[in-house]
Amino acid sequence: MTTFSFDGEEVTAEPGQSVGAALLAAGYRSWRTTRHGGAPRGLFCGIGVCFDCLVVVNGRPGLRACLTEVRDGDVVSSQEGAGRDHLAC
């Protein structure tokens, strides 16, 4: 089993699972809010086409949770908007 954290909570995954699949299995449905409406989003297409499931992994924002393979000890967190608000001026 692989273990990672999501917004501070410990989550387990099977080896080879994507971050998105592991979060889905753990009962999470959303981990991003939209830039304009602040609406919750999670997995939609599941194959890297829609970019709805963006997530922050080990400090790197904008990763597609459906395509990003989870690794033991990963620190995963929700993404707000573009996930780069610190760059906004």
Partner: peptide, 10 residues
């Protein structure tokens, strides 16, 4: 757009 709505392929 609600979480929990997926594509069939997804």
């Amino acid at each position: 757009t609600l979480p929990g709505v997926f594509t069939a392929g997804g």
